[in-house]
Each structure stands twice: as structure tokens, then as C-alpha cells.
Write a protein that binds this DNA or RNA. Structure first.
Lengths: 210, 210
DNA sequence: AGCCAATCTTGACAACGATCAGATAAGCAC
DNA sequence: GTGCTTATCTGATCGTTGTCAAGATTGGCT
């Protein structure tokens, strides 16, 4: 008995094809392949014709943007969860970094889409800055003693932290580092050692040049 | 009078097509476009048929590997030059970082190919480790007082430094950071401020867990 | 001179992003 | 109900890509 998935009386007008496409894209991104998703494959997965997505997204890149947005939300939530599990005495900044890197390791394809989206737009989504992961980093920095009124210092510090986490995220997958990870007692310890070496000195090390 | 470039009596057997293809690829990478180069375009630029490259490279990715190798050499040379201009008293690690980031800014397409190549192979080219940019970083770290016999510590520190530089390199292009750069007095000052916040604490902050 | 192997071209294939005319359905007027 | 408008989806098509197989061309060796 063959599965007659085709014969399913899917109505000509899909209820919410936009949503269905985003979900299909997410499914494809999560399932291996190598992060470079094809618009046609997404349409196929959603069960519609190759041209259908163009009624909901101008481009392929606009679909990817939508996928990236979901990723940013997912990342922020993950970071919030991990932060809640970290006692105030511990280095919450490192906890955030680990959450960030872990996310990129567990969702490599989505992470790539998220960052490529940012790169194309030459800026992170503003939503991310206002209520997302970036905000969490700033708060954690203020907890460490940074002057909240020193906007430049804060921006610089948060940028540095973000760069550090991103750099680690992109490099940490190399098989080359496996021996080092093993020697340090696993991936988590490796990340902790790496990130604790990258957290800023502190706010007062260098005052902004006027 | 149309330019009869086609009529140039290019011999059937190109002298060294492999070399010519790499150079054509470099030319295309340096000229705008957006970093995603097409094998056919490279062949076109070299004046041969679309299938000709397959006699010198198994894949498109193998051509990109060759281009990446040239990039790594170029980067190492740039770093050596910048290092020579830095007095021993100054922070030579930061100088290396700036050279790294500047390279990625001035050759974005080549840089992307270099790193994508590493990502596909899950390791940096061994040449890079033994005599290239990585070696320079290790030497600079030892200059700062790291114990050269502590292989784990050295590997960890150099990895951290490399992650930091790579993170900055990928983030620093965002238009979003322009005000911050201007406020700090330009790109160079921005980079210096960022990187000096990311250099490691020092070797003895955390001893490797046995 | 004659052959071999390396090299390059031609032609083809499937898959891709994108666009367009046309089919289909839903919503709303009356 | 009938007729119109609009949003949505299909089918066909274009130009491009990576890759391959078959044939043409050439330099080098004997």
C-alpha cells in the first residue's frame, strides 16, 4: 500500500502557505544537507509548485530572512533559559557565551542563515537589539560593573563580547580541536576555558579617546 | 571596429591553464560581485570552455581551495609586514589582530573563500599552522610570557586569540557600528579598542584541569 | 613517421532562481 | 443565486549553474 501523499485533497488555496513554507524551510535546515537550502526544495516540501513561494516572498533571501528571524527568537530564548540556571555569583557572561556557541553547534544550518542574513543587511535585526540576545549581553555587562550611562563603553564592550562569541562559534567545530577538548574534559570545559580567556579585561582598562 | 578578442590565436593547449585559472579566479574575487564565484565565469575569464577546469581540478571546491591557499600566504605575509613595523614594547598581539581584520576587510571575497575552505575541511591547512599566520600568533603569545613548554595552554591561548580576531573580522563590517567607529576616531582605533578588550587575561588565570 | 597520453571543446543533463500568462478559488456586491 | 474583483497557485519557460561523456587537438616519446 503506497502512501498516497500526493492524493491528499490539499485545497488549491493553501490556508497559510507562508507559515507552511517557513516551517518546511526549518525542517529542511534541521535535516542535514549542508545549510544551502533551495527554494524549490522548500516548495516541494510544502507540497506546492516552485513558483508558489513568490506570492509570499519577493526573493529566496526574503524566505531566508523569515527563517533567520525564527532563529534569533530561538537563540534568545535558549540564552534566557541558560541564564536562569546560572547563579548570580558565577560568570553570567560566560554562561551567555556558552549558550550562544552551543546554539550554533546544535543548529549549524539555521545559525548560518541567521548570520548570513545579518551580513546581507549589514546590521543585526533591530528586534534583536531591543529585546533579544544583544539585550541580554548588555544587561550582563552592567551586572559586572560597567557604567550603564557610558553608552560608548557599553556598546564597545558588548560588541567585543559578541565578536568573541561569534568567533568561537565559527571555529569551535573544527575536528582539529578535538584533542584539546578531550584534554580539557569535554566540549563544555573547552568552551568555558576559551570564553573566559576572551571576556573583557574590564571597563576601566582603556577609556575612550575623546 | 569591434574588438576581436575571440580571434586571438590562443593555442589549443594552454601553457599552464591551472595557473591561469587560479589567477582568473583571483581577478574575479577581487572584482566585486559578492564572493560567490562561478566555475564557468572563471573559465570564461581564462578564455577556455566551461569543462576545461575539470582537467586540473576535481571540483569547483578544489579550485576554491587553491585560491584559499594563495589567500593564506598573502595574509601571513601581510601580518609579517605589520609585525615588523611594531616595536617590541607595543602590543604585538593586537598588531597581528589588526592585520588579520584589515586583511578580511580589504579582501572580503578571498577571506570568505579562505574560511569556507577551512570549514569544509574542518581544519586549517597544515601549512598555515607550521609556517603561516598561526605560527606568528604563537610566537607573539610566547613573547607575552606564555610558557612555551605548556602545549595545552599555548594551544588554548592561540585558539582564543584566533577566535577573537575571526569574530571581529566577521562583525566589524556592519554599517551599524559606523557611529561607534567615528566616535573612537576611525576604524583603526575601533579595532584597537575592540581587540585590546579581547586579548587574553594571561596564561596563569586558569590552569588547565587535569 | 607513428603512437600515446594529456589537454581542450562540444554537447548534453539535471537542478536552480526567477518571471509570466493563465487557471482557480474566495470574498463580496447585488 | 449571479457576476465581478482580487489573491493565490500552476505550468511553461528563460538564463544560469555544476558536472559529465564523447570527440577533437596537440606535444612528446620512440
Amino acid at each position: 500500500m503506497e502512501p498516497v501523499r500526493v492524493a491528499e485533497p490539499r485545497p488549491y488555496h493553501h490556508g497559510d502557505l507562508r507559515r507552511a513554507l517557513v516551517e518546511a524551510g526549518r525542517r529542511l535546515l534541521e535535516a542535514e544537507t549542508g545549510s544551502d537550502i533551495s527554494l524549490r526544495a522548500v516548495a516541494r516540501e510544502a507540497g506546492v509548485s516552485p513558483a508558489a513561494p513568490y506570492h509570499h516572498f519577493r526573493d529566496k533571501s526574503e524566505l531566508l530572512d523569515a527563517l533567520a528571524m525564527e532563529g534569533w527568537d530561538q537563540l534568545a530564548e535558549q540564552m534566557r533559559v541558560d541564564l536562569a540556571l546560572t547563579a548570580p555569583g558565577q560568570d553570567r557572561l560566560v554562561a551567555l557565551g556558552i549558550a550562544y556557541v552551543r546554539f550554533s553547534r546544535e543548529n549549524p544550518a539555521i545559525y548560518r542563515v541567521m548570520f548570513d542574513c545579518s551580513q546581507n543587511h549589514e546590521a543585526m535585526p533591530s528586534k534583536l537589539r531591543e529585546e533579544g540576545a544583544y539585550r541580554l549581553v548588555c544587561d550582563a555587562l552592567i551586572e559586572t560593573g560597567l557604567d550603564p550611562s557610558d553608552e560608548t563603553g557599553l556598546e564597545l564592550a558588548s560588541t567585543a563580547v559578541w565578536c568573541a562569541a561569534h568567533g568561537v562559534a565559527e571555529m569551535v567545530g573544527f575536528r582539529e580541536f578535538s584533542p584539546l577538548k578531550a584534554h580539557l574534559g569535554g566540549e563544555e570545559a573547552f568552551l568555558r576555558a576559551l570564553l573566559s580567556r576572551l571576556t573583557l579585561f574590564s571597563a576601566e582598562r582603556e577609556s575612550p579617546a575623546g
